[in-house]
């Protein structure tokens, strides 16, 4: 029984039509040209695709390999899209969205997405805060050893939280201001963990990645050894390829 076709991404023609890539379920990746677009797809072997590590990374790997072969401009498709035939693509995507897709491809041409996730060690930051903030540490010392009321605990907890927020905001501002100037578009995403302080994606000219990378390092150094940064410098541009 056929499960249709699994889709990976859309490239501008002539696009990656002759690449030997392996897709999900070890299926060969093929290219379908429709008007000015080239779709990478493979035969679907399942009715629904589990969002497993292998499948998620496998989908992204197809796009990264095509990008690595020089087909840098791509509209990545969300994980798990399958179609029964190309007529659906014509009717549901190309016909209503062709102009918007072309505009999006033109905007992405010559640019790349990079991502920065900044983490701190909250416990170490708190110790630093208490060491550096004399009024707060004096208040803590004054309250220490006493049986405190809930109001007192909430009050000092609140003061500490505000001071921690100020530290967090200083880090966010440094990265936001220092990196946004190098990008034509920025998307700030939710933090995914308690330790994550900043999570943003930047659309930058393709050839300026080295400069951007150096700037990430330079901002990190402003905070000596307080931060850990995950810098993603090669990805399909999910954050900037969205139809509205």
């Amino acid at each position: 029984m056929s499960h249709g076709l699994y889709l990976y991404g859309i490239f501008p023609s002539p696009g990656p039509t002759g690449l030997a890539l392996e897709g999900l379920d070890q299926q060969p990746v093929q290219a379908q040209v429709i008007e000015d677009f080239v779709f990478l797809y493979s035969e679907a072997k399942q009715s629904r695709y589990l969002a497993s590590r292998r499948n998620l990374l496998g989908h992204e790997k197809v796009l990264e390999k095509a990008m690595g072969e020089g087909y840098r401009t791509v509209l990545p498709l969300r994980f798990g899209l399958t179609i029964s035939d190309w007529q659906a693509v014509n009717e549901e995507l190309i016909a209503p969205r062709s102009a918007e897709m072309k505009a999006l491809l033109a905007r992405l041409d010559g640019y790349r997405e990079v991502g920065v996730k900044v983490f701190w060690d909250a416990a170490a930051e708190l110790q630093l805060l208490m060491a550096e903030n004399a009024p707060l540490s004096a208040e803590r010392d004054r309250m220490s050893g006493r049986n405190l009321s809930m109001d007192e605990v909430v009050r000092i907890g609140q003061a500490i939280e505000q001071a921690m927020d100020a530290r967090r905001n200083a880090i966010i501002t440094a990265f936001r201001n220092g990196l946004s100037a190098l990008a034509i578009e920025v998307v700030e995403n939710d933090n995914l963990t308690e330790a994550m302080v900043y999570n943003a994606a930047f659309l930058i000219p393709w050839d300026t990645e080295t400069t951007f990378s150096q700037q990430v390092e330079a901002i990190d150094q402003q905070f000596s050894d307080r931060l850990k940064i995950r810098y993603n410098n090669f990805t399909a541009p999910y954050n900037f390829a969205q139809l509205h």
Partner: peptide, 14 residues
């Protein structure tokens, strides 16, 4: 990125 961003047609999600 891949679960909630990128191009999507809701009817194709499997």
């Amino acid at each position: 990125r891949i679960l909630d961003k990128g191009i999507v047609i809701d009817a194709w999600v499997r």
